[in-house]
């Protein structure tokens, strides 16, 4: 048992540093280019930007939907924002959005923390508004006796935690359900979405503050073996995203994204505020993947797209570290 405790101290010395103040912290990024003497991307307060969406733009562990009508089609998004009017308007146009498609994983992808459907029959679509790509942090509780992940601060009651529970601060992605279910015209496969939200309080279609998504260790002894984790039931309204902070995040180089997920209709209660991990059209701003390339979902690195078919993304690899080793 001694070795387990020893290794946990080692890891805990490593993980929470993410939240510590850094030794040096030069200026907060402004998004203003010294070289061009202007805002190169997304000016503050008032502005708009456009970007294309591409098939199969999901991430690790997800089902990447790439159907022939998508590879032959196109989709694009436009975001208009106005601080003076207090609005963020998102318009998305799809040409080649599969109609009532069905899809399935080879096996159940549910985790001890989140349930996911194995298959979807005649699904509809939803858009996810991804405002913060791992530039926010949240507390996750782990059991110091076993090293096992208990859950996020918004999913557990502190009073109910075992005495051995320890808080670890880890990065999260903050997103929200932008739309209720929608679908394309069955004849043309065209769909248009036009939705306006509150600039300072971006609430999801259910009226909640959205959802945190994290790629975090399941078990502290194997800190590089990650799992996908979603908070359930919607985040509190008072931590909802604010467009000002999203602009800061774009200016600091983290970026913004939209993703379109295939959803069961009706959605089961467990998926109320989060997405089903089957992803079709998606794209990011300011940088995007031109048509013809596909990205490694683990590293984000690109290579030529050689096929067009719905497939399962890479999964998180097993750990190469095991700090607990065989317990004495």
């Amino acid at each position: 048992m001694r070795s387990l405790v020893g290794c946990l101290t080692l890891i805990l010395a490593a993980l929470p540093v993410m939240a510590q103040t850094l030794p040096l912290n030069p200026r907060k990024p402004t998004g203003f280019s010294t070289i061009e003497q202007r805002y190169v991307y997304a000016p503050p307060d008032e502005g708009h930007f456009e970007f294309p969406l591409f098939p199969g733009s999901g991430t690790t562990g997800e089902l990447l939907i790439e159907e022939p009508e998508m590879c032959n089609g196109s989709a694009s998004a436009r975001v208009d924002y106005s601080k003076s009017e207090g609005t963020v308007r998102v318009r998305v146009h799809y040409d080649g959005l599969p109609y009532r498609m069905s899809a399935a994983f080879q096996e159940d992808r549910s985790t001890p923390w989140n349930q996911f459907p194995v298959s979807v029959t005649e699904g509809k679509w939803q858009i996810w508004f991804v405002g913060h790509i791992f530039d926010k942090y949240s507390i996750f509780y782990y059991d110091a006796l076993t090293g096992i992940l208990i859950g996020n601060e918004y999913d557990v009651e502190v009073e109910d935690l075992p005495p051995s529970a320890i808080p670890v601060v880890l990065p999260v992605l903050h997103m929200m359900q932008l739309t209720p279910h929608f679908e394309s015209d069955p004849n043309t496969l065209v769909a248009d979405v036009d939705i306006t939200k509150d600039y300072h309080q971006l609430l999801d279609a259910e009226g909640s503050g959205g959802v945190f998504v994290a790629y975090i260790p399941k078990q502290l002894c194997k800190p590089d073996e990650l799992t996908l984790y979603y908070t359930d039931n919607g985040l509190p309204v008072d931590i909802a995203m604010d467009w000002d902070n999203i602009l800061d995040s774009i200016h600091a180089g983290y970026g913004f994204a939209l993703a379109t997920s295939l959803e069961p209709d009706p959605k089961p209660a467990y998926l109320k505020s989060r997405d089903n991990i089957m992803i079709g059209w998606g794209g990011g701003y300011p940088f995007n993947v031109p048509d013809g390339y596909t990205s490694n979902t683990l590293t984000g690195a690109l290579s030529l797209r050689e096929t067009c078919e719905t497939h399962e993304a890479l999964r998180f690899p097993p750990s190469i570290y095991d700090f607990c080793g065989p317990v004495e």
């Binding site: 912290n25 907060k28 990024p29 300011p286």
Partner: peptide, 29 residues
Amino acid sequence: QSVEVEGIAPQLVFTLDQVPRTQVTGPVR
């Protein structure tokens, strides 16, 4: 893509270092 350096933020990489690893932040270019 990379940034015009203005600040630094924690780097998202697993490591046992005593001092956090950082990455530069700034207008993305």
